[in-house]
Every structure is written in structure tokens, then in C-alpha cells.
Design a protein around this nucleic acid. Structure first.
Length: 268
DNA sequence: CGCCTACCCTGCTCGC
DNA sequence: TGCGAGCAGGGTAGGC
């Protein structure tokens, strides 16, 4: 499932293709899922940004109010340079097509005035980018001291942007914290802060993760490489790389959750 | 307000 | 071999 590293990889891959091109038409048949896309017709792509797992396609034209085409990849969404059986949106540009495929249809698009995210509350309340200077140790430690179960807290996108199920499990393993731990000590929170930064940086470097089911691939169909670095995710029953104890899988907040029962002990 | 739960949606895996 | 049940899950709405 696309999280920050996969979305960032997507951004880097399609920006050279889209930048400077005119969007002639966005073709789809699900207006409730891809909202106000007609506003993008005839507009020029000036660049691509990202906030957490949201891709922000900037549309700037002289004499026109700037717009943003927001794209969330959902679970199975991704851009391709060639049409696929699960193409949901075709972006017709003045120099060819780009295809958005999304087998399970959890992906979303919307054209909005830049920064107006009222219709997307998670984006509106998005926490700091984990690899930016805006991600402050002290803020994180203080918020973590008051938080409920740490994994659902991370998944809320409020303490930090872009952490999803895979990278939450990986970061918590690296920090040696149980996913259900509440009210982190300053030492725990600091370890988690560093773990998130390290995990995200390495995953971006590797071009994201491609799961064994091929859930995520880059626009050119090439796989990410980070999955070979997964220590707990999708490794139930296999030995913890640190201590050899079999990795355990449970369900927490309706999410498959992987952890080492020896390294990640729940404090009372 | 904050936490929890159900729901959206469909391809794939698994068991019989 | 075929088929249906179950599973995967980010974000959001709605309930308490």
C-alpha cells in the first residue's frame, strides 16, 4: 500500500513527464471519487508536490486562478505510462496519456483551490513531514507522552505525515516499542522519532516497497526495493532479525500488525 | 473533542 | 478444477 516513500517515488517519476504539459481532459466514470476534475481541463502542470501520502499536482496558468489536483493513491492506486485492465482515470495531455490504475478503487482525486482542504480533513490536519526540519523532536516527545495506543496514533497522520501500516510496524520494531503501547516515555519517543526518520529515508532511497502481491509498482512497472529490508511486515512466524524470536501477527485498530514479542514488550 | 467502529471496494488466496 | 468465503486496508462518517 502506498505510503510516503511510494508516493514520493511516484512524484519523482511522473513530474518530468507532466511538468509543462497541458491537461486536455481527465477521462473517468466516477465523479464521486474523482471530484471537480473538469476544472483541470486546459490547465498547465507547473510542478508536483507531496504532503504525506497525498500527491499535489500544481496547475498554474497566466491569468487564471491557481488550482491543485490532489491525488490519493489509496491502497492499490498508481500511475502508469501504459493502459492496464484496472485503469480508472486517463489523463489526456497535449503530449500523450498518463493512466491511473486502481484495482480496489480506494484512490481519490479532487481539484481544489491550493490549500483549501476542507473536503479532506486528514490532509487539512496533516502533521509535519518526517524528513523535514518541521518535524521537531520536542513536539513529538511531548505529544507521545499524552497519546493513546502508539500505532493508531501514528496512522492518524497528525504526529507525523505519511506513516502507514508498513512503516508504522517497521518503525516500531526499530524503536523496540510495542504497537499498543500508550503514553511513551521520553526515551521511547526519541527512539521512535529517530526510527521513523531512518526508516522513511531508507525507504525513499530504495524507491519504496513492492509487496509480494505486486500491490505497488512504480509508473514504469519497475518494483520498489525496500521490501527486502522489511524486518517485521509480512514476516509472521519468521525470526526477528535482532533476536531470532518468531515475529507475531495480531490485529490492532483493524490493521494487520507485526511485531517481535521479545524486543517489543508492552509496559503495564 | 477524542476515541472507536463500520464502511467503502474488488482482486486475490485459501479451503473444501 | 471450481467456487464461495474471507482477507487486505487508508480515510471518512457517524456514534458514543
Amino acid at each position: 500500500m502506498p505510503e510516503l516513500p511510494e508516493v514520493e517515488t511516484t512524484r519523482r517519476k511522473i513530474e518530468p513527464y507532466l511538468k509543462g504539459r497541458q491537461l486536455i481532459r481527465l477521462e473517468h466514470d466516477a465523479p464521486h471519487r474523482y471530484r471537480q476534475t473538469h476544472l483541470a481541463h486546459g490547465r498547465t502542470v507547473s510542478g508536483l508536490g507531496r504532503r504525506g501520502k497525498y500527491l499535489l499536482i500544481h496547475l498554474d496558468d497566466a491569468g487564471e486562478a491557481p488550482l491543485e489536483l490532489i491525488v490519493h493513491l489509496g491502497m492499490t492506486g498508481g500511475f502508469r505510462f501504459d493502459a492496464t485492465p484496472h485503469t480508472r482515470v486517463t489523463l489526456h495531455t497535449d503530449q500523450g496519456q498518463l493512466y491511473f490504475q486502481d484495482a480496489r478503487r480506494f484512490g481519490k482525486m479532487a481539484v481544489v483551490t491550493p490549500g483549501e482542504y476542507a473536503s479532506m480533513p486528514t490532509l487539512a490536519r496533516m502533521g509535519p513531514e518526517p524528513l523535514s526540519e518541521a518535524f521537531l523532536e520536542l513536539d513529538f516527545v511531548q505529544a507521545a507522552a499524552r497519546a493513546g495506543a502508539v500505532k493508531p496514533w501514528l496512522l492518524s497522520q497528525q504526529p507525523v505525515a505519511g506513516v502507514g501500516n508498513i512503516y508504522a510496524d517497521e518503525s516500531l520494531w526499530r524503536a523496540r516499542i510495542h504497537p499498543a503501547q500508550t503514553r511513551l516515555t521520553p526515551d521511547e519517543a526519541l527512539r521512535l522519532y529517530q526510527a521513523i526518520r531512518t526508516t522513511m529515508a531508507e525507504a525513499v532511497e530504495a524507491g519504496g516497497s513492492t509487496l509480494s502481491d505486486g500491490t505497488y509498482q512504480q509508473p514504469d512497472g519497475i518494483s520498489g526495493l525496500f521490501q527486502v529490508h522489511h524486518n517485521v511486515y509480512d514476516r509472521a512466524g519468521q525470526p526477528c532479525p535482532r533476536c531470532g524470536t518468531p515475529i507475531q501477527k495480531t490485529v490492532l485498530a483493524q490493521r494487520g500488525t507485526h511485531f517481535c514479542p521479545h524486543c517489543q514488550v508492552l509496559r503495564g
